[in-house]
Amino acid sequence: MRPFTYERAASAAAAVEAAQAPGARFIAGGTNLLDLMKLDIEAPAHLIDVGRLPMAGIEATDEGGLRIGAMATNTAVASDPLVRARFPMLSEAIVAGGSPQLRNKARVGGNLLQRTRCAYFYDPTKPCNKRQPGSGCGALEGLNRNAAIFGASPSCVATHPSDMAVALTALDARVETLTAGGGARSIPVADLHRAPGDTPHLETALDDGELITAVVVPPAPTGGQAYRKVRDRASYAGGLASVAVAGGRLALGMVALKPWRATAAEAALVDGADPAEAIGRELAGASPLGRNDFKVPLVARLAVATMAEARAAANGGGQG
């Protein structure tokens, strides 16, 4: 960790303004940023603590959806009665991530913007275009069992580890932001993260110093919801793959550097394909690297099982 200065933002506007300083960064729960600072992967000169801004509320919207403040803790969202009633899958997805201690600390905004868990990104002695643009990609020909099968580039094959983002993508949620100029924006969660291209260090659609203030979830689509995640142990582990189903919408996790909306599968379902066929259509576009080949059949099987679970949930049944 390098020396840095710290301030606690008095308001969202003040936070955005302070963020214009060179090397400034927001810190929310700090569960990701501080780890990276300790490893000298991130070295912000100035931290703006937004964690205590009064943006932690969870309110019903007039349309029947929810507006979730960006500073709500992961635990608060997962245990909120409205969330559980309207978007049980969001609650399941959050609880599938990290550990209770992490979820108590982590915020909605921070979770969406957490960085990859690629092992080569975490080891500063290794080449990594995301950490050090132009240095190469250690994972490309390395032990990349957990690498992406969609949307990767030779510059970066990492995946995004957030569970919540996968659920929000299937739920068609949007983030609301406050920009440097004081303007507000609304961005679909599905468009929040960028494909790596040849600039994997540029990760999101946000401008420098743009603050996420809330996540807005539209009313749930008809049909059931379900979230399933496969991981190497029962808890406290990033996923090998996950699937979020909300009605006819499908998002895949840990298969790309962003939550992957399975549009080809959704289209196939609309055309009357059965679940296996539909996910097969999506996976036809996958490009695994060898060590992560297993993700293709894994996602195929997991998607079918998760869709079945969602159907059962819609019919009032329990989960298998």
Binding site: Y122, D123, T125, L143, A234, A237
Partner: peptide, 28 residues
């Protein structure tokens, strides 16, 4: 769960923290 793969190119171990080196947790 456990094991630390060796990256032959660098002569180093891939998992370097307790998030990546997978040990059983209570739920297991």
């Amino acid at each position: 769960h456990e094991g630390n793969p060796v990256d032959p190119r660098y002569g180093s171990l891939v998992n370097q923290d307790l998030a990546q080196y997978v040990l059983p947790v209570q739920a297991d």
